[in-house]
Amino acid sequence: MVTNMKILQVINFNAWFGESHVLKDINLELEENSITGIIGPSGSGKTTIMRCLNRLNDSNSTYKYDGKIIFDGEDIYETKMPVHHLRQQIGMIFQVPCVFPKSIYGNMIFGLKNLKLMKKSEFPGAVEKALKAAHLFDEVKDRLHEDAKTLSVGQQQRLCIARALTVNPRVIMMDEPTSALDPKSTTAIEKLILELKDKVTLIVVTHNIEQAKRIADHVVFICDGRVVEQGEKNEFFTNPKKEETKEYIKWTRCECE
């Protein structure tokens, strides 16, 4: 019964790029409608974990893996489900907001149009709903046909989140979603992340320990490709078990490399 609540499980997972072993014996479990915060120093493998979860590394010919990733009860690397169906269900937001050189509206319907999730007449309603969920609607409702590049970077990141929401993912992964943003946009996105928890399961990579404290339910600390420690947020921050974790929480520094 307990396993039913885990939407994603990573079991003894290892990953390599050529000869370099970048993920080592990773074990993770994500509860549905929770926020998992991944922290760790630069180069520790945070981005790589995410890109394994939606198989975005597959196109890299040097990429090799070992172990299992179970999504919704199925091994994502073994299943017959086409990889694009997996990616539709596990959305991803990048560190630098990636809007297409199109209008705001054109960006919003990009997924809808290509995945044929609904009739064209239903697009405007779906776009409005997703923009509202991302708290962007009021700011853009009068300029939907302007180039998306005219938005501020913070707005662009919310547009990316709204765009990801249009295809109804069950998990959304965000790779340092606020590192390119100002404090005001950061606060807006953090609020948004907390609200999204009702709809989706989230994984948020962050360099910022305070951010992890504010938003995560479950915290995973990785260093040099290994999970050093993970646990429920309060437990993790108030009572860390490992010396490295204590050191990292205090100084954002890790000796493990």
Binding site: L56, F100, F110, N114, L115
Partner: peptide, 21 residues
């Protein structure tokens, strides 16, 4: 690369990425 990846991350198949990116 980011445009391809943004397309893939939305769930576009390989052919759809070719056609729309």
């Amino acid at each position: 690369v980011k445009y391809r990846e943004a397309g893939k991350a939305l769930g576009l198949s390989k052919w759809k990425v070719i056609g729309s990116v």
